[in-house]
Design a binder for these strands. Structure first.
Lengths: 364, 364
DNA sequence: TTGTAAGCGTTATCAG
DNA sequence: CTGATAACGCTTACAA
C-alpha cells in the first residue's frame, strides 16, 4: 500500500496499473473486470470496481483503440465548404441531432472531419485515409457529392458507411433517404385536389438523387391525374432561396403561368413566395406554393408554408442505428432505408382563384 | 527488397515498419521525416516521402496520441437534449461551422461529445472524464449551463477550454461572446431615433450571460436617452419562439402598450410578430420589432426582421483560434473575447404611427 | 479464477 | 545524420 509519489499538487490521473496495485490484483484482471468478462470472481470484481470509482478511473481510448482496432467513434463527413457562403442547409443540422442521439445511446461519439474545399494540409480530402488515421469504426456521409472520387474511395472500402440523402452503395455502404418520389406525388395530388391544373415544379440540384426522385414523383402524379405535362413548367433550381426566386420569376413570365408551384425545398419555396410577392401576387390565391423538407422556418414565414415533412431526426437516427449494426455485426448487409414523408398543410396552399379554378383543362 | 506476403486480396495497409523497410531506413528515421525533423539528409527525406506517397501511408492517430499525449482533436460539448424538443437553436449551428473551419485549418478535427440529458452509460455526463478518455487537446463548450458541476469540473481543469456565449473562466478556460450590451443599446437607440418612446424588452433566458447583458444594455440606453424605464415593459423569455409570443401578448394587454419591442433573440421576435399579427396589429406601423442574432430566417420572414447581427461564424472562428493558441502555447493566457455586433435594419422596424410619434414624453 | 508477457503503431532517448 | 530500443496504456493469448 505504498502511496505513489504525490509530487504534483494536482491529482494524478490514475492508470490501469495504479488501479491494479490499489486493488491488489494484476492489470489483466482489472482489464477483465472493466470489460465485463464473466470469468472474474464477484469478490474481485467488486473490489476493482470500487477502487475504479474512487480513483475516477477512465481508460485511455488511444491505448484501447491501438490494440482492439476499434475506436467507438463514428466519423461524419459533412460538407461545409464555401459553396453557399452564408448558409448551411438547415436540413443536415437536424439530421445531425438525430444521429448524435442514436449513436450516443450506443456509446459512440462523433468525429466531425473538418473537410472544406481546399486541402488543409495532407492530401486533398482523403476521407478514407482520414478514416483510417482516426480508426473510426464507421462513417456517415452527408451533403457530399456522390461522384467525388474521395467519396467513392471511402464507400468502396471495407469501412461501414451510411449515406444520408445520397444513393451511395458499396460492399459495406448503404443509405437512408426520405420517400422523395411519394412526397412529390403527395404535393401534386394535394394541389390537384384543391383544384389546380397548372402545377409547376422547381427542381432541386439535379445531380442529386432527391431532386431526381422528386421530379419523378411530380411527373408520375401529373400523368396519373391526367394533367398535361409541360416542359415550360419545369425550372431547375439548386435547393437554395435564390434559385427558387429566379425560377418563379421565369415561370410567372410565361404566357400561361401556373396557378401552383411545387418547389423541391422549403428554401426555394420561400424564394418563390418572394417572387410572387414582388409581382403583387397573393399567396395562396394567385399562386399556391408547396415546399419540401419542413425546416424550422416553414411555419414561421407568412403565409405559413405548406410542405412535405421529412423526418430529419429520424433519418439521422436511422443512419446511426444502421451504421452501428453494420459495425457490430459484420454479416449485416448494408441497408437501403426509405422513410415516409408527410404532407403538412399550412397557409401557402389553397384553391386557385375561381376564374381559373375549374374545367377549362384537358383532363382524361 | 523481399516483398511482404500478399496473402490478402485487398491492399495491405502500410505500417511505419513497412515504410521503413521499403525505404531502406529505420523506423526512427521514417518518423523523423514524417514529423519534419531538420536532421535528416535531403536524400533520405525524399526517398521516404516518395515511398510514403506510393504506399498511401498515413500514421495511426491512436499510436501517436498514446506516446505524444496529443490527439489533434478538439472536443465539442454542445447540449442537444430534449429541452426544446424539435428545435436546435440555429445560432450554434453557424458557430459550429466557423469553429470547424478554423480548427480544421490548423489540422485539428472536432469530436462531438454525445451528451444528452440522461446518462448514456458510464457516469452521468463527465465532460472532464470523457475529455481525458479521448485525450482531446482542448474543448469548446456551447449551449451548456455554466452552473452544471460537470461543466465546472472541466473548466476548472488544466485542459484548455473556450466557451461560447457563456462567461466561463478557469486556469485554462476563456470565452468568446458578442458585445451583447452594446447590441441592446443599438437596438434601443435605433427605435428611439425612429421616434419610439415606449420600448419594451423581451429578455432571453435570464440564467445566461447574454440575456443579462442585453437587459443591461437595454436599461443603459433607456436611461441615457431619457426614456422612462418601466417594469411592466420587461418580459422574461427563454430565447425561443413561444416565449416571445406569450411575452408580446402580455405586453399588448397592458394599459399603455409599447410601440416597439426589442426581443433578445430573432426567434422570440418572430413570436412577437405572430402575437401582433393575431391582434391585427401591423408591423412596423402598430408595433416595431427588433430581434437579436440575425439567424438565417431573419430576412425571410415577412416583414423582414430588423435585428442585431452576431458574427456567428466569427465567434466559432475566434473560439477555435483562441483554443488552438492555448493548446500550442502553454503560456498563452485564456482570452476573453468580445466581438462587435451590427444593426441590420430591415422592414420590421419603422416610425410609430404619427398620433403617438412625437413629443408627449418626458425627455431630458 | 488469476497472473505473465507479448504486442498494438508510434515517438523519443540514447548511442554511434 | 541514423539506428536500436524503451516507452505510451491497454487487451489478450497462454499458463498456472
Amino acid at each position: 500500500l505504498v502511496p505513489k509519489t504525490f509530487s504534483e499538487t494536482e491529482a494524478e490521473i490514475a492508470d490501469i496499473r495504479e488501479l491494479a496495485r490499489q486493488s491488489g490484483v494484476s492489470v489483466a484482471t482489472v482489464s477483465r473486470v472493466l470489460n465485463d468478462y464473466p470469468d472474474v470472481s464477484d469478490d474481485t470484481r467488486e473490489r476493482v470496481l470500487a477502487v475504479a470509482a474512487e480513483l475516477d478511473y477512465m481508460p485511455t481510448a488511444a491505448a484501447r483503440t491501438l490494440v482492439t482496432k476499434r475506436s467507438h467513434v463514428v466519423g461524419v463527413v459533412l460538407y461545409t465548404g464555401h459553396e453557399h457562403p452564408d448558409i448551411q442547409h438547415p436540413f443536415f443540422q437536424e439530421v445531425l441531432v438525430g444521429l448524435k442521439h442514436s449513436v450516443g445511446a450506443q456509446k459512440y461519439d462523433l468525429l466531425l472531419f473538418s473537410t472544406e474545399d481546399d486541402e488543409n494540409g495532407f492530401g486533398t480530402r482523403g476521407y478514407l485515409k482520414r478514416s483510417r488515421h482516426h480508426h473510426v469504426d464507421g462513417v456517415v456521409l452527408m451533403g457530399v457529392d456522390g461522384r467525388d472520387p474521395a467519396v467513392r474511395e471511402l464507400s468502396g472500402s471495407r469501412i461501414p458507411c451510411v449515406a444520408v440523402d445520397l444513393d451511395l452503395v458499396g460492399p459495406r455502404t448503404g443509405y437512408v433517404m426520405s420517400d422523395n418520389q411519394r412526397g412529390a406525388e403527395l404535393a401534386v395530388e394535394h394541389l390537384h385536389e384543391l383544384g389546380h391544373r397548372r402545377v409547376a415544379h422547381i427542381t432541386g440540384l439535379m445531380t442529386t438523387k432527391p431532386a431526381a426522385d422528386r421530379l419523378l414523383g411530380y411527373r408520375a402524379a401529373i400523368d396519373r391525374l391526367g394533367l398535361r405535362y409541360r416542359d415550360e413548367y419545369i425550372q431547375e433550381g439548386d435547393f437554395y432561396v435564390e434559385s427558387g426566386y429566379q425560377a418563379t420569376k421565369a415561370l410567372l413570365e410565361g404566357p400561361e403561368p401556373p396557378t401552383a408551384v411545387f418547389a423541391a425545398s422549403d428554401l426555394m419555396a420561400v424564394g418563390a413566395m418572394q417572387a410572387a410577392h414582388e409581382r403583387q401576387l397573393s399567396i395562396p390565391d394567385d399562386l399556391a406554393v408547396v415546399g419540401f423538407d419542413d425546416i424550422q422556418i416553414a411555419p414561421l414565414v407568412r403565409p405559413a408554408l405548406t410542405t412535405l415533412r421529412q423526418d430529419k431526426a429520424g433519418l439521422g437516427r436511422a443512419a446511426g442505428e444502421a451504421l452501428v449494426r453494420m459495425i457490430e455485426d459484420t454479416a449485416f448487409t448494408p441497408p437501403i432505408l426509405t422513410l415516409p414523408v408527410e404532407l403538412v398543410v399550412r397557409e401557402s396552399s389553397g384553391p386557385p382563384m375561381t376564374h381559373d379554378g375549374e374545367t377549362h383543362d384537358k383532363e382524361v
